[in-house]
Design a protein around this nucleic acid. Structure first.
Lengths: 214, 214
DNA sequence: GTCTATAGCTGGATAGAC
DNA sequence: GTCTATCCAGCTATAGAC
């Protein structure tokens, strides 16, 4: 005997698989052609379907961007959550920075969609955005292991790392002119935080997280 | 008696003025609507002319981007070259960073065109790019006044400053959550360079400038 | 759900009269 | 040099048959 709930589950699984396949095609296309060059025609062709079929699964192009964002954010969170070889807090921090930069330089398109806001009308939905928040908390914890807890220093950390990545992607794509500076940057940062502990006054006004960070 | 050289000069001045007016309109439009939203129709309307007239002065849309780049690079170079109140090298460096960030946060569109490479088929011509090279030399000189001469440290400097600006523009537009960290960042950077002088081995392989930096 | 066919629009760029 | 008028390519999105 078959109940209706089973049928519903089965249908929803099929539907999700189809959606996933479309997002697969979208990412493979965007990695090759760039984020701006994504068109529904090309996407449909790559996915082996037609444009109206795409619309059977996504309401609009922005809905596709949103699903792409969610996929990328999940992959990013998983990558950053993987365990490290070392237990030394400093090494963990360096490895974190290296992972982040590797993720971004491997695919500038991922970096662009997740961390820069370059697509005109698009903002990620809270659901797609959720995994990124977890990653930020993770980074906060790894900084805390190094005795860094001030909000000001967390902002400095994100600026340091994204600055390296940004220069690398913009001015030396495929190279390592900036990424090879990661270890030195982290050492500099840790030395600074240690030396200024309780010597500078902390940031006075409350800050709010608006974007995705390491 | 009128000679032909005078007539030629006069015509060229007129032509240059007309070109300038079009670039004026282009920038005013881009500052309002964003860099990606520039269309020749809107541009012509804003400039009070028609599309074919635009083509009488520019061969293509990319030629317009190039002229916009040249204008922005010149303004940037002039701004960065203005004298400072203090003679203290450290203060000069901080003021340099503040000026840079102010220029970028005042108009993210300028920042995007000059320092990020987000427009698909566009690369600036050497002529438009020239002023930026001068600014880089200027920054190198100001770092040298602080005893910083290694190429590695110059790259760290550009990463630090653009990182702050990037986070500011992306995640707290209109605010100062990151820009207010400039002084602390510069102090951290100077302390690091001082402490590592002749203690770390210098970067081994030669580096080449591909992009515009501070 | 998937297709063919097409609407409806906006983009860059041009022809040709004046 | 400046216009009117137009071309043509690309885009997102939809109507309607199956």
């Amino acid at each position: 005997m078959i109940n209706t709930a089973e049928i519903t589950d089965w249908r929803e699984a099929r539907r999700r698989a189809a959606r996933d396949a479309i997002i697969d095609a979208a990412w493979s296309l965007v990695v090759e052609e760039g984020l701006a060059g994504l068109s529904l025609r090309d996407l449909a062709r790559r996915a082996g379907i037609t444009v109206p079929t795409v619309y059977a699964y996504f309401d609009s192009k922005n809905a596709i961007y949103d699903a792409m964002f969610g996929r990328a954010a999940t992959e990013f969170a998983e990558r950053m959550a993987e365990p490290f070889d070392s237990d030394d807090p400093r090494e963990v921090l360096k490895a974190t920075a290296r992972r982040f930069s590797q993720f971004c330089t491997n695919s500038p398109a991922h970096y662009q969609l997740l961390f820069q806001r370059t697509i005109p009308g698009f903002e990620p939905s809270p659901e797609s955005y959720a995994p990124a928040v977890g990653s930020l908390a993770l980074a906060r914890g790894r900084l805390a292991l190094n005795g860094i807890t001030e909000a000001r220093h967390l902002d400095m950390w994100t600026a340091l790392i994204t600055g390296l990545v940004d220069q690398q992607v913009s001015n030396d794509p495929g190279g390592d002119r900036w990424t090879r500076l990661i270890d030195e940057m982290v050492d500099m940062f840790l030395a600074h935080c240690k030396s200024t502990r309780a010597s500078r006054k902390p940031a006075s006004r409350p800050t709010q997280v608006k974007g995705v960070h390491t």
